[in-house]
């Protein structure tokens, strides 16, 4: 149903662009990237949400994507694990290489792709099931596990997400009874339970208070040694705190990519500087 258009790599043909777009300012060269997009474009029907974005995301580091709302950062994130496939009228051109393999290639099954790539949503979305069942969900999708194995994995996933101590006595209670911050960490634990290689986070703290946000950020800090994290955020302080690298997007284009500190301290593009100094966005 969501067949990828055959015309790959012809993204520039469809729209005549009067504006002259400068090449993005990329100051660091990532060798052997975990994720690499080449001329990636995404359309929602006639509207182009991502325009020719080429970006290399380093392995086992945290990369932040920042930019004003509507700049396409969430769309880019969801292009990595093909969640955009679920949106009707959405099509993607160009390449999205995940560990060197095009996620949109003919032999790639989005189910397997997503199994390797965890996604944390803007609003915590625990299933209306018990805490235990939430964590066990992914495992039971992909494995036949007996109850002992299941319990072990659930416990270690919750521990990894710094949630075990708070919920160990209420594993059988509904996850909807947890606080917002706990719910979001539950969602992270749920993703971690199937040992993903990547963790995509779509403004994971935008619905949370500062304390809960700090806990999530601590968690990200612990996790970055093990998984490749890509976080979309509109909060520049957050990007500065958690990310090793930062990409700035504007109107569907990649404007600048650099080490986080360099990007914030000496942006090369005027647009970037205007944004991080709060002149718009």
């Amino acid at each position: 149903m969501f067949r990828r258009p055959a015309a790959r790599g012809e993204s520039t043909v469809t729209e005549a662009e009067p504006e002259r777009i400068p090449e993005p300012a990329v100051s660091v060269v990532i060798e052997d990237p975990a994720i690499e997009s080449k001329n990636l474009s995404v359309w929602y029907r006639r509207k182009q949400a991502i325009k020719d974005v080429s970006l290399r995301i380093p392995r086992r580091k945290t990369t932040a994507i920042i930019g004003p709302s509507g700049c396409g950062k969430s769309t880019y994130l969801r292009a990595i694990n093909r969640m955009n496939d679920t949106i009707l009228g959405c099509r993607t051109t160009g390449e999205m290489l995940v560990e060197k393999e095009d996620a949109y290639g003919p032999n790639v099954d989005p189910v397997l792709l997503r199994r390797k790539i965890g996604l944390i949503f803007q609003k915590p979305n625990p299933f209306p099931k018990s805490v235990f069942r939430n964590i066990a969900f992914g495992i039971q999708l992909h494995y036949r596990a007996n109850s002992g194995e299941l319990e072990g994995i659930v416990k270690s996933a919750l521990e990894q997400a710094n949630l075990w101590d708070e919920v160990k006595d209420r594993l059988d209670e509904s996850a909807l009874g947890l606080s917002g911050g706990q719910q979001q960490r539950l969602c992270i634990a749920r993703a971690l339970a199937i040992e993903p290689e990547f963790l995509l986070m779509d403004e994971p703290c935008s619905a949370l208070d500062p304390v809960a946000t700090a806990k999530i950020e601590d968690l990200m800090f612990e996790l970055r040694k093990e998984v490749t994290i890509v976080i979309v955020t509109h909060n520049m302080q957050q990007a500065a705190r958690v990310a090793d690298y930062t990409a700035f997007m504007y109107l569907g284009r990649l404007v600048e990519f650099n080490r986080t500190r360099d990007l914030f301290e000496k942006p090369r593009e005027e647009l970037t500087e205007n944004y991080i100094t709060g002149r718009f966005g």
Binding site: V111, H142, Y143, R144
Partner: peptide, 11 residues
């Protein structure tokens, strides 16, 4: 833990 076959799931 034995992985479930994707083919079976798809079927």
């Amino acid at each position: 833990m034995r992985p479930k076959s994707l083919r079976v799931r798809k079927a």
